[in-house]
Design a protein around this nucleic acid. Structure first.
Lengths: 207, 207
DNA sequence: ATTAATATGTGAAATTAGTAACAAATTAAT
DNA sequence: ATTAATTTGTTACTAATTTCACATATTAAT
């Protein structure tokens, strides 16, 4: 029952709860969470219920215990190391991003084939892809962010997997063909923008 | 029946078809498209069928005509102008991105409240948010990319809408509360990374 | 020409996801 | 203490999505 959509929602609850906690709140209700997440109150209760998370019949849910329960689901206790591959526009943005710690993650290295880009200095070292295996072994990395151009995405992904990566967050607009044990999560910014345009366009289409 | 998930799939078909066309292919089959997109062949045929796109009972689908049909669905003929708000890490990546044209879009301006950032020079001008309305009117902009920090996202989004924006591609990890006519599409990179971690973790969890 | 092979197209069945309705518990009010 | 109000938790129902099964068209082979 570890459903995909359900996991997505639980993530959203978790984010919303962190916000609410930040605002100083101690408890919340399915309908307040609904406001924060856009998910219907019943579905929220059902999700919680199915994951064994229980509230009080009139007191709602205690934010801290909710977050604890969700941490059990999502939080590996050990900090997880990730690597970034590709120092293009997106790659450069992601290496400068500072919020990994907040999600209990740590970016340990960046890789790029371009020697010029490797001279750049960030808070994490930049290597040639030849050093990948070494880094993967040294830091026990299993997840990589792939931010290389479309034309080299498949090949690079394959190389990552050969060197011990088993999860890829892929920014290239291609379906990566990889062994079945590898998990891929795709982010395609242009496609999201296009769809937004489409829906706007449809709505405002001349009669 | 202009369903959301269906539109998402049609977009994926379109991308795959563009790739196949680029590779010099003239026709394709539901099962080949399935390989490229990860969608089952039946579902592909059904999607096409429901949108009035028809193939030949043994000859498969003609890539060019398929793309034409999809263009009718997705392609506004007029190039669509977009603006970008926020010149942080992601914003800087998006302003440097060169592929908008390819999707028949055009980034006409960037906005940031930080005067220092406004001194940077890109291929598009950087303005203070005060100029937003002017730009929106001059370039007939209805869609904005919102790449500001979480704490100012809601407020900024509201301001965008007040000044004529009706579609937002939101990178901030909050559910924007906006009037019903406004369309929002969210991209949350950390949440995608976390989910990848979660699924990897679940799979490799000690027994 | 006939037969075999291959792909599409589609109604029915199965699966999955989400909503509605309401009982049970808890708190607040009188 | 009793009653009323509120909120969770769950079962039954409804809706949406996907797959299955197979008829139908088209091409290729003999």
């Amino acid at each position: 029952m570890n459903n995909l959509v359900q996991i997505k929602r639980l993530q959203r609850y978790r984010m919303a709860l962190l916000r609410l906690k930040n605002m100083g709140l101690k408890k919340t209700f399915s309908h307040s969470l609904s406001e924060e997440t856009g998910v219907s109150p019943v579905l929220i209760r059902k999700d919680f219920s199915q994951f064994g998370i229980r509230g009080k019949r009139r007191g709602g849910y205690d934010i801290d215990s909710l977050l604890d329960e969700l941490k059990l689901l999502f939080g590996r206790e050990k900090e997880q190391n990730v690597v970034l591959v590709g120092l293009g526009n997106i790659g450069a943005a992601l290496v400068k991003y500072e919020g990994y710690r907040q999600s209990n993650m740590n970016m340990v290295a960046v890789f790029d084939i371009d020697p010029v880009k490797r001279t750049r200095r960030y808070s994490v070292p930049v290597y040639s892809l030849e050093s990948l295996r070494e880094v993967v072994n040294a830091f026990d990395v299993s997840v990589a962010i792939l931010a290389v151009p479309e034309f080299s995405a498949q090949e690079t992904a394959h190389y990552l997997v050969e060197n011990g990566i088993s999860g890829i967050l892929n920014f290239a607009p291609v379906l990566l063909k990889l062994p079945g044990h590898v998990l891929v999560n795709n982010i395609n910014i242009m496609i999201e923008l296009e769809r937004l345009m489409y829906h706007i366009g449809v709505r405002t289409k001349p009669i």
